[in-house]
Amino acid sequence: MIKIVSKSLIIAVFLLFTANTNAQNCAEFVNGQSLHFGYSFNSMSKSGAVKTGKKYKFIFTLNKGKIYRFAFYASSGLNNNMEFTITDQNSALQIMYLPGEVPEAPLEDEFNSEGEYNGYDDYGNDDYGEEDYGYGEEENTSSSSSSSNTTSTTEDLPDYKAISGIVFDAVLKPGYYNGRLTYPFFEFKPANAMNLEILIDIKELEDGIIKKGCLGLLVQDKADELEFESL
């Protein structure tokens, strides 16, 4: 009889354990993040459960007169292996292609020569904000030297601020730069109203095992002062 009770207890404890560990707290991947200095929360933000081997496409309508900031957060269980393809739907031009995996977190001196990232320190708000980082960038260079899948280069987009030497740590594996925990983000300023498509390809694992995790897209915006004056 004692055996039966013990078995039952083990089953009960097992059920409790597995049920709780399966529960995804994905919303925290958006709600749990601090807003970056000067930006407001945009309700187009999205979080949810995802799994390896699938693609997730998000269509955002962006308005002229605002600057949008997209920050990405993901579970480490997704293996830091995902690709981002960001496209202007209206012109069908691919804005950037970002391979997911970067073997090593970049060193500080790998940021672009002009050191744009460090510009964020100008806010003087080391203790405030999202504590994230984006990518290095240079003008007039191709959009992704590390990827052969890029369908268009910035040569096709002469007026776009070109992206290259991407300092992009997939997830998405946050790293520490200048002592700050940082996450990938992109900032966009629409020249005119547009639909922006972000395709996130969460790569299949080599062993074929499907892993589930959370993905969060925190969208923030602020008025583009230069444009807003004329509105």
Binding site: A23, M44, G48, A49, K54, Y56, I59, T61
Partner: peptide, 30 residues
Amino acid sequence: KQESVEFDEFEEASSEETFYRIPSPDEMFS
């Protein structure tokens, strides 16, 4: 806070899913 609730709205049979994010009314009013 959307805490502690499992939700699999991304879960579908197809290999690609699309989510249309519509700006909220306050964005237009802003």
